[in-house]
């Protein structure tokens, strides 16, 4: 079960002014700050709880996304995976790393931080990974068995899209609490 498209969302715990981010996003294109070919800024500030402000790219899109009323930094990889990204785990690692890079830049340029205790994985690929209990089970096992060295120790894996077959499989990952030694 290898998805062609994976989206990672790193949540932000406070309100963000997207208007202030428009020049920041253009600056990232000018300075070539992000991985992949980034083409342009798409502005959907006017859509309630919508995709927000996007940096549309060739291989993948970055965004400050407002879906579900939960703002977050997203990265969706959509095509031209590197040859070595041939498993769910390697693809997830690429997407997570790119989302984290965008979050670092956001923090550097605006002071905004992301919530380290959780993140969301959405798989908008209904052909290869339909939103079914079976898909969730497979992805859950992959996450627990193959990806913790990349994403960190996982506490829980939750299916947040429910059983609505229209929706993309969406999983929220809760990180395990850090134990002081």
């Amino acid at each position: 079960m290898i998805p062609e498209r994976i989206q990672i969302k790193l949540f932000i715990n406070k309100a963000v002014s997207l208007a202030d981010l428009v020049p920041v996003f253009h600056g990232w294109i000018q300075q070539n700050e992000l991985d992949g070919l980034v083409l342009d800024v798409a502005d959907y500030r006017h859509v309630p709880n919508g995709p927000g402000l996007l940096l549309m790219g060739h291989e993948g899109d970055y965004a400050l996304d407002l879906a579900d009323g939960r703002p977050g930094v997203t990265y969706k990889h959509k095509r031209d995976w590197p040859a070595e990204a041939d498993t769910f785990a390697t693809r997830l690692a690429l997407a997570v790393n790119r989302a984290r890079r965008a979050a670092e830049l956001l923090n550097r340029d605006t002071g905004i931080t992301v919530d380290p205790s959780r993140f969301e994985i959405k798989i908008p690929d209904r052909l290869n990974v339909p939103n079914t209990a079976g898909s969730f089970e497979v992805i859950q096992q992959e996450l627990l068995n193959e990806t913790q060295d990349v994403v960190g120790p996982i506490g829980a894996v939750l299916n947040v899209a429910g059983d609505d077959p229209r929706k993309a499989l969406t999983i929220e990952v809760e990180m395990a609490p850090v134990v002081a030694i």
């Binding site: 798409a42 959907y44 919508g50 995709p51 996007l54 549309m56 908008p124 229209r166």
Partner: peptide, 14 residues
Amino acid sequence: EVMAQLAEEYSDNI
């Protein structure tokens, strides 16, 4: 619904 799915997969969710 199908157009919404296509927007989610191939476009920008709009």
